[in-house]
Design a protein around this nucleic acid. Structure first.
Ligand code: MN
Ligand code: MN
Ligand code: MN
Ligand code: MN
Lengths: 229, 229
DNA sequence: TGGTATTGTTTGACGGTTCAAACTTTTTGA
DNA sequence: TCAAAAAGTTTGAACCGTCAAACAATACCA
């Protein structure tokens, strides 16, 4: 029962297979190779070994599937992967592209307790937007990005000034809509253009341009440096 | 200049050498082997390779030293190691024995930004004891350890009840003394014995027994479950 | 249905990390 | 001072994860 600790590479193969086994084609050698950035021949070799270890069911030329043992491991690792990534992005404020490889490296060393606590901390900050806002400010100030800075709601942000989203002070459908558009605490936002009558406004966030009502923008707290164009 | 990314094993050797080079004997093969839990012959092999990569200066049978390049890498990794460990212990509440191996594994995947933000978050919680206390409660409640719970100062904690240290509400020498004794936010503490006249009291924390004045204990906020012996 | 394009496998080789065993150098202390 | 003990090294072998090249099976389509 007490199998030898699996190498991080083996854990990654299982994670990839889990992910692909949820697609219609199942987990095929070529796809695994693409996902893991290795040659197909490497995958063939790995699958044979995984099969011998009882972690996958593998018949050459067929899609591979996880055994119950393999699935257990894969789900454990995939769970840690998402916990790590969420923590890195939501709490530490990393970009998705930076968070992804770090999460996939650290997942092999994180214990279940570590992953659990990271998720808990991300939940904690979600439940306490005031604290999250303070933490975001501390982050911003630590970066020289920031200096003093001024706080306001988004509808009061001058055109062209980059601002840090501190919180979204509204619940329900509107909040969900904003979050879907990528407006979340910690991201940088800019008002690009205000319509002639002052409404709607066009904002830029994470490289996307989107438009919203002034009344909606009033629910978003932001922090920015006055003075700079 | 743009040397190939170093393996985590190479980074660990450099970290160990840095640590040992601060001892009077310097970094000797046998000590490196003990620290890294490998055979001396393995270390000899590694040192030869490290020497060829220009990371250490190594003459057989002599203590090895870091080159400027090697020292740069070693200090970078050692810095991440302590940042990770501090974060895992202070923020996530892991025991030192649990935090150590996790930190030494994750240090190889953490980017400088990740380490910096983790340190910043630990600093942030230190500067905001009220938030730290709330986070500690969230942690405790998530564990089923906890359930509702009651808050008081340590001098009001009944004998034999395990309590969570929330904060130390005093500055200066007394605070430092308590921290040195291992009384820090997040640890579990028990009052073992109260002297006949109610002062001093004997407390147990992290497996150590120590005694303190009631007046001192009054500065420590704790949280515990009433009812249980 | 047969031939070609695509996909996958086998094999041999290489670099990296480790060990055990045999060997060498250095240290120690009588 | 020198022999035994301790510390360190060399060597050969193993295992892992990877690749390229040659080969095999399967899928597709005319
Ligand atoms: Mn991974
Ligand atoms: Mn992963
Ligand atoms: Mn390490
Ligand atoms: Mn380390």
């Amino acid at each position: 029962m007490d199998r030898e600790r699996l190498s991080s590479r083996v854990e990654d193969y299982l994670e990839a297979i889990l992910q692909l086994s949820e697609t219609p084609q199942g987990a095929r050698t070529g796809e695994i190779a693409r996902l893991m950035d290795v040659q197909p021949s490497t995958v063939s070799t790995a699958l044979k070994s995984l099969n011998e270890q009882g972690l996958v069911d593998y018949t050459p030329y067929d899609a591979v599937t996880l055994t119950p043992d393999g699935r257990r491991v894969a789900e454990e690792i995939a769970g840690r992967h998402v916990a790590l990534r969420r923590f890195l992005m939501e709490v530490l404020g990393l970009d998705p592209e930076d968070a992804e490889p770090v999460a996939c490296g650290m997942e092999h060393d994180a214990t279940p307790l570590v992953a659990e606590r990271m998720t808990l901390l991300a939940d904690f900050f979600r439940q306490h937007p005031g604290m999250m806002a303070k933490w975001l400010v501390a982050r911003q100030e630590a970066r020289g990005n920031g200096l003093p800075g001024v706080e306001s709601s988004l509808d009061e942000l001058p055109q062209g000034v980059r601002a840090l989203v501190l919180s979204i002070d509204v619940e329900g459908a509107l909040r969900r809509r904003l979050v879907e558009m990528g407006v979340t605490p910690g991201v940088l936002i800019t008002v690009e253009r205000v319509a002639p009558l002052g409404d709607p406004i066009a904002v830029e966030v994470r490289g996307y341009r989107l438009s919203m009502r002034k009344a909606e923008a009033a629910n978003i707290r932001v922090r920015w440096r006055p003075g700079l164009a």
